[in-house]
């Protein structure tokens, strides 16, 4: 049986306590929400924190609140996100994405906050300690070089969260609370294009809320490519959100890809093509064509990278088609 490395466990009751506790350990602690990403990694010895700060006992981290838009507290489980009626009707891509994560058990345990902070993945990295020892360690953990791109000075591990591309596409923001206070940043700024330092927040900052603006008629979809219809991480995720003006022209467009880079990738060119236009077959084709350019998957997830890249175009087209039918 694979076992966790020893740690001290702390169960703060409030956000403030959690942040203070983290500060006390000065980097030797980690936050744990559902633990569904963290514990497998700890069992494989990607992380051996001295202390875990468990977030599950913090009531103020749970719940979905309707305000101007909608606020989802970070500790809300994915099953709650997936089954929430307002999310299902007005922010359907997010409910869909949450429902496509892994398995029912993991969705009941995993949280939206944890999903957004999910460690980047790479099949040279998500392996047991002895496997990595056999290969020689890579720079993301214990080593010097990148195994996928040995000449490269950076890590190309893949952003594999289903919900992040959606939250970015929906113009979401996240509230961060840290020892230096509180701030709200755009969801897209939560990510960096680096497989190791993949989060645009300080380590001691806690994600407390995900804020979505009023839906305002925005239609959204999320499509996920994976080998099996359960368990599997996305090897490509496409989140698309369109708002149509009353004349049928596209007033706002965002298309964001997951699973093909170290961060959710925004298809800026596709969005530019869509703006102010009516959604025709030709336009869908052009936008899809433009979308697959920024995707640069490497051979470090399931399936081949050329296949994943090819699928980007197909999936973006299908996402837009689905929106045109909605």
């Amino acid at each position: 049986m694979l076992r966790l490395p020893p740690f001290e466990y702390h169960a703060p009751r409030s956000i403030e306590q959690a942040v203070n506790l983290y500060a006390q350990f000065g980097g030797a602690a980690m936050f744990a929400a559902g633990g569904t990403d963290l514990y497998p990694n700890m069992k494989r010895r990607q992380f051996t924190p001295q202390a875990l700060i468990g977030l599950n006992g913090i009531d103020e981290l749970r719940g979905i609140v309707q305000d101007n838009g909608i606020t989802i507290r970070a500790g809300t489980t994915l099953s709650q996100v997936a089954s929430h009626p307002i999310l299902q009707s007005q922010y359907s891509a997010l409910a869909t994405a949450a429902n496509l994560v892994s398995t029912p058990q993991l969705r009941a345990m995993g949280t939206l906050g944890g999903n957004l902070c999910l460690d980047t993945r790479c099949n040279y990295y998500n392996q047991e300690f002895s496997w990595r020892q056999a290969l020689g360690f890579c720079m993301k953990k214990d080593g010097e070089i990148c195994m996928v791109a040995p000449g490269s000075s950076r890590c190309w591990a893949v952003s594999s969260t289903d919900c992040a591309p959606v939250v970015v596409a929906l113009d979401g923001r996240v509230r961060l609370v840290g020892p230096r206070g509180e701030r709200v940043i755009a969801a897209s700024d939560l990510y960096r294009d680096d497989g190791i330092l993949y989060l645009g927040k300080e380590r001691d900052e806690l994600v407390t809320e995900i804020l979505l603006p009023p839906a305002d008629g925005t239609k959204s979809v999320y499509l996920k490519l994976r080998r099996r219809d359960s368990f599997d991480f996305p090897i490509l995720g496409v989140a698309a959100a369109l708002r149509f003006a009353s004349n049928g022209e596209i007033a706002n467009a965002r298309i964001v890809l997951g699973g093909v880079g170290s961060r959710p990738l925004e298809c800026v060119e596709s969005a530019r093509l869509l703006m102010g236009q009516k959604l025709t077959r030709e336009l869908i084709g052009a936008a899809a064509e433009a979308a697959w350019k920024p995707a640069r998957p490497l051979d470090n997830t399931d399936s081949t990278h050329s296949y994943r890249k090819k699928m980007t175009r197909v999936y973006v087209a299908r996402a837009l088609e689905a929106l045109s039918e909605k």
């Binding site: 099949n123 496997w131 056999a134 290969l135 080998r227 099996r228 219809d229 368990f231 599997d232 399931d302």
Partner: peptide, 26 residues
């Protein structure tokens, strides 16, 4: 989907997640 794959002499996917077997949905 089921396959034993190697990179050099090293098994590429020695786990239940990476070695693909049909789920109930498949």
């Amino acid at each position: 989907m089921e396959e034993m794959t190697y990179r050099g002499g090293l098994h590429k996917a020695p786990s239940l997640l990476d070695y693909k077997s049909l789920t109930m949905n498949d």
